[in-house]
Design a protein around this nucleic acid. Structure first.
Lengths: 230, 230
DNA sequence: CCAAAAGTGTTTACCCTACACCCATGT
DNA sequence: ACATGGGTGTAGGGTAAACACTTTTGG
């Protein structure tokens, strides 16, 4: 490395892994074993290796710390956090990533992974001081992005395990927005958006009542016009 | 700094400073004097200092490299760029920021600033290889964000020097979107959104014709429902 | 048959587009 | 007077909210 390059900081990736479980938006958290913030809950994450992309680092840390292998699941960069005092050990700039998994994905399994546990986002944000570093801020930003993304993107389809019914998709919206939606208008909106949902031709009665069509996510990624919150 | 902290990378901030000039969206670029990419155009930016926030670093670099002092102008983080080979000198993670200035702001003045020049975004994106590092990618992402932001935010009001007329605001949209808008419907939309524009009570005839009311940006930051592109 | 969930139809209200039209200035 | 841009009125179309109603299962 050239001598004029100042190695000014450590660079980490942090992961906000979200899924809907038990009618709540939940996040995968680990328990810190060492100082600083020993014993506190923290977002999974770690240092970026020398030859890694930020996204590659995020995938590797996710696997190492939680045992979750990212298949087709959604991942995107959230933003960078670089307040000088966010880590008492020194200057650490963290690039936070948002991962969205279908319901009922791996709760936790593996070596490092035993420490990983699902927690309701709402509970954690109600007691932000209990989280390590500035992870409450990161979590808040991630939750906000998901809420906003549901309005005009197909992100909700990534929170459902395929194949899913329209009602199951609606349940995701209702949990994330904490708001009831009209089942009939929602149905029209989703099935009426070309390319958003692909009908598998199969049906299910797992939710009771009349059999419901089963869908998988389609190619359309934008919801236009958006679905607006009350 | 604690010994277990790996100083894995240099952290920089890059700045995408945008303004509308001469009926085009333009960006403030500097000419690199030293290798790598000597002679190429690059986004202003530089290393983050030890005790600085990322936003503080962005403000400082903006002032140092371009002489632009950010008053009430809009600044936001765009995203982090961390490909391992984006800088041939070694591992450099850059956190890009988007700055939006009103038209006719400081072209260039000051010491370092002499190198800073306004360039049409469109021209630079047409020849991406002429830019240093991955700055064409960053510029493209920034331009995309501005285009999208005009749909549902008050960002356009920050691209106008206050006080401005509705027609001047519309000109911003037409330049950024490269699309003509109906002046009458646009007028209704903007003046009809509560809190978006504050009437100063003054008028101007600088654009000819009937005197136009002069506005300043209001408190409303969201445009709801959005203004959609054709 | 009844409950429950899926899906369709219909009404109403709102908003957007398109364009006719009037207003207030400079020349 | 007339050209130019500022601003308002209004008719038609499309989409969404609200809700009545039908469909298809399980018990």
């Amino acid at each position: 490395m050239a001598p004029d390059l100042r190695l000014s900081a450590a660079v980490t990736v942090d992961l906000v892994v979200l899924a809907v479980r038990d009618d709540a938006l939940q996040v995968l958290m680990v328990r810190r074993g060492t100082a600083p913030y020993a014993g506190r809950r923290a977002l999974p994450g770690g240092f970026v290796e020398a030859d890694e992309d930020l996204l590659q680092a995020a995938r590797r840390e996710l696997l190492e710390e939680t045992g979750v292998r990212l298949g087709r699941a959604h991942i995107e960069q959230l933003r960078a956090y670089g307040s000088p005092r966010r880590d008492p050990r020194g200057r650490v700039v963290s690039v936070a990533h948002l991962v969205v998994l279908p319901e009922a994905s791996v709760p936790s399994a593996g070596s490092d992974a035993d420490a990983a546990q699902w927690q309701p986002v709402h509970d954690l944000l109600a007691a932000p001081r209990k989280l390590a570093f500035d992870h409450a801020t990161i979590l808040r930003d991630a939750a906000q992005r998901v809420e906003d993304a549901l309005e005009d993107s197909a992100l909700a389809t990534r929170l459902c395990r395929a194949p899913f019914t329209v009602a199951e998709l609606r349940a995701v919206y209702e949990v994330v927005w904490d708001q009831e939606l009209d089942a009939r208008n929602f149905h029209r909106k989703m099935t009426g958006t070309p390319g958003l949902l692909v009908d598998t031709g199969r049906v299910t009665t797992r939710n009771g009542g009349r059999p419901a069509a089963l869908f998988r996510p389609g190619r359309t990624t934008r919801l236009n016009p958006p679905l607006v919150r009350g």
